[in-house]
Every structure is written in C-alpha cells, then in structure tokens.
Design a protein around this nucleic acid. Structure first.
Lengths: 109, 109
DNA sequence: CAGTATCCCGCGAGATACTG
DNA sequence: CAGTATCTCGCGGGATACTG
C-alpha cells in the first residue's frame, strides 16, 4: 500500500494528484463517471440523469474522456441513431476516486 | 463497505459526489490538501510548494477550506507574523480521496 | 436520438503592487 | 511574513435553436 506522503512535496510539473485533477476536476466529469460506473449508457440516459447539463457540455466532456482513453464510444448507424458510452479499463480505475469522494461527501454537513 | 452503485442515479439536489466535487473541484484545492496531509504548514510554505499559485488564490482557497471546517488556522501575533494551517478531523477525511486520485493519476499516460 | 451551431456571461484565476 | 487591493482576462459553462 502506497503512503500518501509519497505524493507530497513540490509538484509543479507532474504531480499525480494534479494530473488526476486535470481530468476529473471539471464540474460534470465526476458525475458522468459515476453514472458510467453502473454500466454502459446512452447519450440521452446521461442527459436525463445529469439534470441541468447542456447538450454542448455533455458532448464536450464525453469527447474529452474518450480522448483521454477513459471512455469508449460505440455508434450504431441505425435510424434513429444510437450511441453508447462505457468506461474503458483505464476509466474503471477512477472508481476508487469516485467512491472516496462519495464517502467524503456523504459525511459533509 | 459501501458499494459504488449506492451513489448512482439522478442527483440534481444532493449527491455526495457532487458535494465533494464542490469542495475539492477547484484547480488548487486538492494540491493544498495534499500538502497539509503531511502536517501543519505555514502560508509561505504552501506558497512555495504550490509553485505558480498567486497569493490571492492561496488565501481564497484556504479561507474557503476554513469556512467549510476542513482546515484550521492558527495565528501567532508575533513580529514577523506567523500563521499555521492544518487539517481538521473533518479535513482528514479527504485523505482517501487524494490517495485515490494520486493512484489514478500515476497510472495515467 | 444524438448531437452542432451560436451567442453570451460570470467567475475562477493570473499579475502586480502594496501594507500591517 | 502573511496577506490585501486592483485590474484584467480567458474559458468553463449556460441557453437556445437547429440538424443528419
């Protein structure tokens, strides 16, 4: 088990915590990941679950996550169209982060 | 052990993940917490470790964390002045989040 | 259904100078 | 040393309308 102090100190260029924050730091990213943790989801399912997100934002974050290799997108060229998003193996490594955040957040007054 | 799926679903009003994100979602917050995890720190120590942060930002984030009850501030009315910041018990509950982020971030290409 | 296309706005954040 | 005081700005993000 890695000690937290292993990650302490100056980290201007490449701190693991900073890099993680660059990915999941956005307003919606963690919520999208949370939704995808329970399995493959369609665009409209995510839009419904993430009440309040604009289509533009949802598309942008999903695009970023795909680009980072954390989410995979499958497009079915049917009419009407259907796309599905799911976490890649790399993306599933975010689960402990979300779980820890949920645990912390639930204890917040 | 809580299952991650317990945190899934619509969460417009009060999702634990969203609440945690509101706290640690900022650009510098996680890095400040990371530094404080190894113990009490002075303002200037933090400023040095967090290379690039402006005094205004550092003060603002520390103030927010104090307001949230996650960080405690001690001022020694000496000349020159000396202040120390440390995590409260509530603040220490963020450690698992930072640890998970570090773990995830270190595996990111 | 699954997005784009536009337009717009506020706030997070940076830079610099100054002070108790 | 430990901060404020100003000024500035980019971009994350929101709203709405439209389309393959």
């Amino acid at each position: 088990m890695k000690k937290i102090s292993d990650f302490n100190g100056v980290c201007d260029t490449d701190c693991p915590v900073a890099r993680a924050n660059d990915i999941i730091g956005g307003k919606w990213t963690t919520l999208i990941i949370r939704d995808l943790l329970s399995g493959k989801k369609r665009y409209s399912e995510l839009a419904r679950s993430l009440a309040g997100i604009s289509p533009r934002m949802l598309a942008a974050r999903l695009d970023m996550l795909c680009g980072a290799g954390l989410v995979a997108k499958t497009v079915y060229p049917t009419v009407p169209p259907k796309t599905e998003y799911e976490l890649t193996d790399a993306g599933k490594r975010i689960e402990p982060v979300i779980a820890a955040m949920a645990e912390f957040g639930s204890k917040l007054r």
